[in-house]
Structures are given as structure tokens and as C-alpha cells.
Design a protein around this nucleic acid. Structure first.
Lengths: 178, 178
DNA sequence: CCGATTTATATAACATGTTAAATATTAACC
DNA sequence: GGTTAATATTTAACATGTTATATAAATCGG
């Protein structure tokens, strides 16, 4: 309830120019807009907004789609591999595989040599699903490329890869660095 | 179980070079590695891996931190504003605010002129939390900037902003485009 | 061969993302 | 002025992210 209404102080944060990166005033906290995670998130949101409706039409989530797509790049996967390749955590992948198996889009087996290891593969039905969606997905990609420019897109890919590489090593990686 | 082991077909997907962006063979599906959402996700993961442990030490999630940070940029927020500024969906924000209020890090009131609208503000306790964490957060930022290069980081920020802008308009925005 | 450690996967518990629907309040229109 | 549409927020239901732990099987050491 009764907080003193000092709304005048609301404009503390100056509107950061696009080129202004080190937007920090005196002893204050880093300008909120210049948060790298936020910038990456917003860009990702904007991109996914183009793809989500398409996947949703076929009752697929983004992650389920990633798993199916990954499964087309090799004949069989172990769960751990699949998690790494599709950038999905093992707990999530475990649930996703259960769902996709129920829907008949993937198959699961067990390796002979290592009874712990799973053999995960896409089914013909799964391939049909991909064949159905992929062309539309490509169209969205083409739209994005046209809107943003192929050259800038290439630059962006490069920077993103380099950023992940550069942070993956020293400390940020999943390596056990007790 | 007994799936024919045609492992030879596993190499359909050519290993894309870093510079190769339009990695598409004949009628095949887009090279999985060249997925823009994936590239953005991996970069974000790499960055967040640097910050998450820090927040976790103080029992804060990334999103709770975003909300607190956003609340320092103005004296009061309505829930909708806060959701937009911190890039959190309203349903999530609703839960987050409940949690943060219980912990005494934020306060909630109601606007006189519009009884639907919330007046959300950070508490002194919330500011203390930020003051405690912010210096460490800044150090991580400095590390990332040093590792990646301030110039490339600036370029990346620019591209990410432009990508979000460019996709926000035509179709991808939240506008009801029935 | 047996116990301890590592590896591969799954579960549990809680927080958030996504979509849809509910609720409450305001604005609009006749 | 009262019904209807729009707005602000919440809740529900389900899927995923994050962390920790459990389970099972392989490996290592004695």
C-alpha cells in the first residue's frame, strides 16, 4: 500500500544508443539493456516466433523438433550424444524421448556391448513428419535471410560460434572443474 | 530391437565449415548445425554458464535476477511493463513476483486510477541483494569481454538488436496476425 | 572374484516457457 | 445506463530447464 509516489525518478536510465556498449554511469549498475543474455534471448525469441506456429500445427515443440532433426544426421544415437548434439539436457531428453516413442516417431533399443547405452533412431513415421514440415521451415529461413541479409547472417553465425567456443574452454564449459 | 544396422548412411550430413552458411546438399534437409535458434541457444548457454553459479549462491534464478535488475531502472512498474522489459512472459512473471514478494525482495500495490494495474517496486532488501551480487556479475562481464574482445562484442550486440528489430516487424511480432 | 568408482540413463523436485482460459476492471457504444 | 468489447493480471495444464539424486551396468583395483 502507501508507497510514496516518486515517479519523477523513473528516468534514471538513459536510453542507450545502439552503438553504446559500455553503458555504465558512475557507480551504478550495468545498464539493464546491455545484458548479453538478454540480447541473445530476445534475438532467439524473435527467430522462434517465426517457427513456433509451424511446429505447433503438428503438435511438436521446438525441442522435439530438434531431436527429430538430429536423428536424421546419423543412423543411431546414444542418449548422451543426442543430448549434446541437440543441446538438450539429459533430464529433458529423457522425457522427450518417452513422448516421441509413444507417438511412434522414434525407436529405442539397447546396445549389445553396453547394456546401459540406448540406441535411439527415427522411425519412418518420424521421417514423414520431417518431410512434411521441412519445406515450410526452409521457407521461414529464407524469409529471415532475406529480411536480415545473408552477409550479416553469416557474420552473426560466426560470432555466435566464436563466442560459444571462447567461453566453453576456460571455465564456462560443462567440464568438472571442482 | 533388431533394426538393420546401416551405419554406413550416417555420413549424409557433411561437416559444415564455420564459414559455410548455406549448408544444404541437393534436396536434403538444412544442415542441422546451421540452425539459427541453436546457434543463439548455444551462445546463450555458454554465457549463462558463467553467471548461473553466482546467482545460485544467493538462491536466485536468472529470471528472478532479471526482474530485480529491471526494477532498479524505474521507481515503479506495472506487471506488463516489467514483463516486456525483462523479456519474461506474464504467466511466468506472475509466479516470480509471488516468490519474490514472499522473500521480501519486492513490493506490490495497486494503482488508484486503474484497479487492475499493479504497482511493483523493489524493496531495500532487494536493493541489498543486488548490491551484493552486482560487483561479481560485473567481473564476469569483464572476463567475457576480455575473452571475446570488446569490438566483436559490440558488433554482436548490434547484430542481435538488428535481428530482433528486423524480425519483430513484418510477421514475427506478438501482433495478432490472424 | 569382490568392492569402489565411473559411466549412461532415468527420476524427483522445483522454476520457468507456452498456450489457453478465467477474472476483474475499464472503456466503448448504443 | 447497461451490454459488449478491450485491457491487466492471474490461473491452469502441460512441456522443458536446472539441480540433485537414484539406478543400473561397466570398469578399475586389490
Amino acid at each position: 500500500m502507501g508507497r510514496p509516489s516518486r515517479k519523477a525518478a523513473a528516468a534514471i536510465e538513459p536510453a542507450a544508443k545502439p552503438t553504446e556498449v559500455t553503458g555504465q554511469s558512475a557507480g551504478e549498475i550495468r545498464a539493464f539493456r546491455r545484458s548479453l543474455p538478454m540480447a541473445l534471448l530476445k534475438a532467439r525469441e524473435a527467430v522462434m516466433a517465426r517457427f513456433r506456429p509451424l511446429l505447433h500445427e503438428h503438435d511438436l515443440t521446438e525441442q522435439q523438433w530438434r531431436v527429430l532433426r538430429a536423428l536424421t544426421t546419423a543412423d543411431e544415437f546414444r542418449a548422451g550424444e543426442l543430448a549434446r548434439v541437440s543441446s538438450i539436457s539429459m533430464p529433458s531428453l529423457s522425457r522427450i524421448l518417452r513422448t516421441l516413442e509413444k507417438r511412434g516417431l522414434i525407436q529405442r533399443g539397447i546396445e549389445d556391448k553396453d547394456l546401459r547405452a540406448a540406441q535411439i533412431s527415427i522411425t519412418p513415421s518420424g521421417r514423414d513428419m520431417i518431410a512434411l514440415i521441412a519445406p515450410h521451415s526452409e521457407r521461414r529461413y529464407a524469409e529471415i535471410t532475406a529480411a536480415f541479409g545473408a552477409d550479416r547472417l553469416a557474420t552473426l553465425y560466426g560470432l555466435l560460434d566464436e563466442l560459444a567456443d571462447c567461453l566453453g574452454g576456460p571455465d564456462g564449459g560443462d567440464g568438472d572443474e571442482e
